[in-house]
């Protein structure tokens, strides 16, 4: 005997101090913000309010990229390509999509953030990362 049920539940999540600043910068300044910990000498992407390694807070806000390198990628059956992109200036990678690919991506390839025309303080204000001009795919 099996019982099935379905329900729709509304949620409303606060991005918080660092998250709000990060998302507003995508929307208003087309900048990707990260955080530098002076103690650990590490730069985190995205911006956060405390160091993931040593716990220090607050951290210094810095702009990253918009260029970077593909550290790893995978393609879904529908063709969407996801990648871990290490932005220039960052020590950690950001999970996002690769777009405008002429062919199969490759590890280490140079990419650059393409911002969406309509931005609403969402991680999708970055439409995706596309191959940097002159980069071979």
């Amino acid at each position: 005997m099996i019982r099935e049920s379905a329900i729709r539940i509304p949620f409303r999540y606060a991005a918080g101090g660092a998250g709000s600043r990060f998302l507003a910068a995508l929307r208003d300044e087309r900048r990707i913000l990260g955080a530098r910990c002076d103690g650990c000498r590490r730069v985190f992407a995205p911006l956060r309010s405390f160091c993931s390694s040593c716990g220090a807070s607050p951290l210094e806000e810095i702009a990253l990229g918009p260029g970077g390198r593909v550290e790893a990628w995978t393609a879904r059956a529908d063709g969407t390509v996801f990648a871990l992109v290490r932005l220039d200036g960052a020590d950690t990678a950001l999970l996002h999509r690769l777009v405008g690919l002429p062919g199969e991506p490759r590890r280490g390839m140079r990419v650059r953030a393409r911002f969406a025309a309509e931005r609403r303080a969402s991680i999708l204000d970055i439409a995706g990362f596309e191959p940097e001009e002159g980069a071979s795919a």
Binding site: A14, G16, A18, S49, F50
Partner: peptide, 26 residues
Amino acid sequence: ARDDASQAELVREAAARALEDAAIEP
């Protein structure tokens, strides 16, 4: 509603105060 803080930032607010109260480091 603590709209000013994410879940993690809320946790940090309490955790940091506890560490300060106990005078310990992370």
